[in-house]
Design a protein around this nucleic acid. Structure first.
Length: 430
RNA sequence: GGGAGAAUUCCAGAGUGGCCAAAUGGGACAGACUGUAAAUCUGCUGGCAACGCCUUCGGUGGUUCGAAUCCAUCUUCUCCCA
């Protein structure tokens, strides 16, 4: 299987350095991607790079995942208009461990195959590197003129943002040195990344050329993922979509993919799943024939959820979606056992209230406004009720001042308040 | 340094003594339709024990029966001249 061809039909190539394809067909090639360890979980913004590594490994080449412990301490100025926070070593190590665990599910690090993946941390070779040694052995080879010509740097000189510290300016040199180091230590001849990394990557190949006189270091970047409507990919109003279930529940993760637009689904299924070309073409054809069935989104969500979480989590997410968005009745809701109920409503805002309060009977508006702060005011509740936008336990609320008693409790302790179609609030009486 | 103007509810932006909880547009939220989409249409957008009451129009103080509207002063911003 040809790596470049594979990425190419998937629309995952933005820029490729001449000679890359020849290099890949010549021998088993080692390639790396840099990952910024700024959190202890990856998010879906990282997923494209990871998919590139997966394809690379499948095509028989050797992936290296480089955790940017050192570079993470500096902060990449590309695409940022402000100086970033720096991380300490302890946090970095912790983050690296967590990231490795996530990557292991997707990339093979452990096998004895010659192309088993490797994880490295640039902190390991940067921490002992003295400033003097660095500027003598590395800085000497690259001119400031060259560094200033990069777009990411130029922008910061044109009055966008707050200027740029020397630390940030050095970033590309440090990343460039990573490539040099991996080239020498691992025979790594290709760097992959997002298109915003092109400038940094070419500093690396330039460094290898000038210092070692070698011109067989290559670069390949993928386009940055965009949504068809121009808004930022991978963000919701609740923030990032994380791969770690602690930060983004599998249910939300599944929902994110299920909700992508038709246009985006067509490109995402190529980028984020390992499905083959024929299957994808068939899915897209099917989708275009009956877009309302959203087979494409369903399949996309299934593939990715299973890949990142598990079949079991996927199954639960589908079940939860059925209850939340299907025409589940009050009856069905009450038939759920407590465990399933809590899973379905995992991630839904929860409010605790004294059970005695419910047993005495309490006014719906008072409960949701005063005791639980679900809604900001009783006027709000009244308006929503008048518009038919509020449900309790899957039944429309007709009177904002209705009295809630223990009869409404599900499993003797839960109340499910629903605003509109998508907003749920769980009240727990204890 | 001198002069002119502006500040209104989530945003933009009307209002220049009682008819102002404040036009209109946008956004947000909800309803219908739908595919948990887009578009469209409808409602709604200060609070409350609600045909009424209370708190809002940069801050403070005043004039008045009555002030977002007039006066004084302070703060911030914009523009013009040097």
């Amino acid at each position: 299987m040809n790596f470049v061809e594979e990425l190419s039909w998937r629309g995952m190539i933005h820029d490729i350095m001449p000679g890359t394809e020849e290099q890949l067909s010549k021998e088993m090639t080692t390639a790396y991607v840099g990952i910024d360890p700024s959190a202890d979980s990856l998010h879906i913004g990282h997923l494209v790079s990871i998919m590139m590594l997966r394809h690379l490994q499948r095509c028989g080449h050797r992936p290296i995942a480089l955790v940017g412990g050192a570079t993470g301490m500096i902060g990449d100025p590309s695409g940022k208009s402000q100086e970033r926070n720096l991380l300490n070593e302890e946090t970095l190590r912790h983050n690296q461990e967590c990231i490795k665990r996530q990557l292991s599910k997707l990339i093979d690090f452990d096998s004895t195959a010659p192309n088993a993946a490797v994880m490295v941390n640039n902190y390991d070779w940067m921490k002992e590197f003295s400033f003097l040694d660095f500027i003598r052995d590395v800085g000497k080879h690259i001119t400031v003129n060259y560094m200033m010509a990069k777009d990411s740097v130029k922008k910061r000189f044109n009055g966008e943002g707050d200027g740029m510290s020397f630390t940030e300016f050095t970033y590309q040199l440090v990343q460039g040195y990573d490539y040099l180091h991996l080239f020498e230590a691992y025979g790594c001849k290709l760097q992959l990344g997002g298109s915003d990394q092109w400038g940094n990557i070419t500093t690396g190949t330039e460094l290898i050329r000038r210092k070692l006189g070698r011109d067989d270091a290559f670069a390949l970047t993928c386009p940055l993922i965009k949504k068809a409507d121009g808004t930022k990919f991978g963000k919701t109003e609740n923030g990032n979509i994380w791969l770690d279930a602690r930060y983004t529940s599998p249910y939300r993760f599944y929902q994110f993919w299920l909700n992508v637009s038709d246009e985006d689904a067509k490109s995402y299924i190529k980028i984020f799943t390992m499905l083959g070309r024929d299957e994808i073409d068939a899915l897209i054809a099917e989708h275009e024939a009956a877009p309302h069935e959203r087979k494409l989104q369903k399949r996309l969500a299934e593939e990715i959820t299973v890949m990142i979480h598990s079949k079991e989590e996927y199954r639960k997410a589908v079940e939860a979606s059925g209850i939340l968005f299907g025409n589940a009745t009050s009856e069905q809701l009450r038939n759920l056992d407590e465990e399933t109920l809590l899973q379905v409503f995992d991630g839904v805002p929860q409010f605790k209230v004294a059970k005695s309060l419910i047993e005495q009977g309490v006014d719906f508006s008072a409960l949701t406004v005063e005791h639980c702060a679900i809604f900001p005011s009783k006027g709000e509740v009244r308006k929503l009720v008048q518009g038919g936008g509020l449900s309790l336990d899957k039944e429309k609320v007709a009177d904002p001042f209705m009295t809630i008693t223990a009869d409404s409790l599900i499993d003797g302790k839960y109340l499910l308040v629903q605003k509109g179609k998508k907003n749920y609030y769980l009240i727990i009486a204890e």
